[in-house]
Amino acid sequence: MKFDNPEDILQWTPLWKGERFPNGRPKVPADVLRRLRRITLEEAWGPLWSKGYHAQFEGDLKIIHPSKTMVGRAVTAVMVPKRPDLHDTLLNYGHEHEGRRGFFNQWVIDSLEEDDVVVVDMFDKVYQGTYVGGNLSTAISTRTKQGGAVIWGGIRDNQQIVEIDNINVYYRGSDPTPIMDVTMVGMNVPTRIGRAVCLPGDVVLGTPSGVMFIPAHLAELTVVHAEKSQVRDVFGFIRLKEQVYTTAQIDSTWSVAMWQDFVSWFEQDEAAAPYRHLTWDDELAQARKTDTGGPSSDVRH
């Protein structure tokens, strides 16, 4: 048994081909995280659902900063009710063989890097299940800069945590009691948060609706899909206001003529500037294969 075992993390995340942390956790690039901060949860949900990832969202959580979006790389932990023999064995192992200090929740927070999010299954324990309070939330803030925590359990010191502006915390409930009678059986292991499953290195997208866990190997695909949807909407709104197209044309499969109009706009209009890293060759090629010259080709300039 090892906590935060690189061999296990590599085995759980074989589809990730990019950079990793020393412990093997996937390190989704900071630029992808930056771009994900601009998308909605529904935009992230679509490409994941279409690829069969149907257990990535949980919305039954309270939020310290309901209006703020949270994005970061998952550092996971699984807690269970205390059984004395197991508890003593694992706590002593961490202290004596891995050089860890303090209680289980401190081990996880001491491992955090910039842009990390703690994701903890506390088996929905709130009374004596408060994974963080004011001190540990301050430590999360210091280490992650703009990360946070998702806790399927409790927190305490809400009045202190709400004053920490640069992170967010999603949790099940609050209680003044400290954390007691729990044992960590896994660190950076597959973790269940309500209906959702999170692996170490997943990108956590927290919004007012809840949290989405985006597999690391699908993070860039997800953000590209979302950005293309966003910029096409911008174009569509403009052309609808100009009465160039009907809503039926905008909402249906675009013709080659519409795609050419879009690409011309995309390359010149200032509103498209934040999206210019995107390419449209595949969409144009597909339109050329399927264009029948029907109503969608009627561009009314």
Rank of each mutant, 00 (worst) to 15 (best):
V223T: 14
Y93P: 01
Q159W: 01
G99Q: 08
D269I: 09
A219T: 06
Q243R: 14
A196C: 07
D110P: 00
R73P: 00
S141H: 03
H225W: 09
D251T: 09
D233K: 14
T191D: 03
R34W: 06
S296T: 11
T177M: 11
V204W: 01
H65V: 04
G210Q: 05
F237V: 13
N158W: 00
V197D: 12
G99M: 08
T253N: 11
W12N: 08
T207C: 09
T292S: 13
R83H: 13
P178E: 10
D233Q: 14
A219G: 10
L15S: 14
G173T: 02
V126N: 05
H87Q: 09
G148T: 02
P215F: 07
I250W: 05
K125C: 10
R101S: 15
N92Q: 12
Q11I: 01
K241L: 14
L61A: 06
K17S: 15
Q286W: 00
V256D: 08
P6G: 08
V189G: 02
L112K: 05
V132D: 05
L199E: 10
N168E: 08
P208M: 07
A44I: 04
A273G: 06
D116G: 03
L86E: 14
V197L: 15
V117R: 03
S229A: 15
M187A: 12
N5P: 00
G148N: 04
D116N: 12
G201A: 04
D121Q: 03
D251K: 11
G194C: 08
E42N: 10
E98L: 12
Q159I: 02
D251C: 12
P81Y: 02
R288E: 14
W259R: 09
E114F: 00
V223G: 09
G134D: 06
I238R: 15
I140H: 02
V32W: 04
Y171M: 07
H97F: 03
L240D: 07
R192P: 00
Y93F: 08
A74M: 04
D8P: 00
L205D: 06
E227H: 09
E227I: 05
D175E: 10
V120R: 01
R20Y: 02
V169G: 02
P66T: 03
V108H: 03
D4S: 10
K17L: 15
Q106N: 13
E113G: 03
S141G: 10
A44T: 04
N5F: 02
V169N: 04
D60M: 02
I164D: 07
G293D: 08
K289L: 13
E7K: 08
G147V: 01
S50G: 11
V203E: 08
G59C: 02
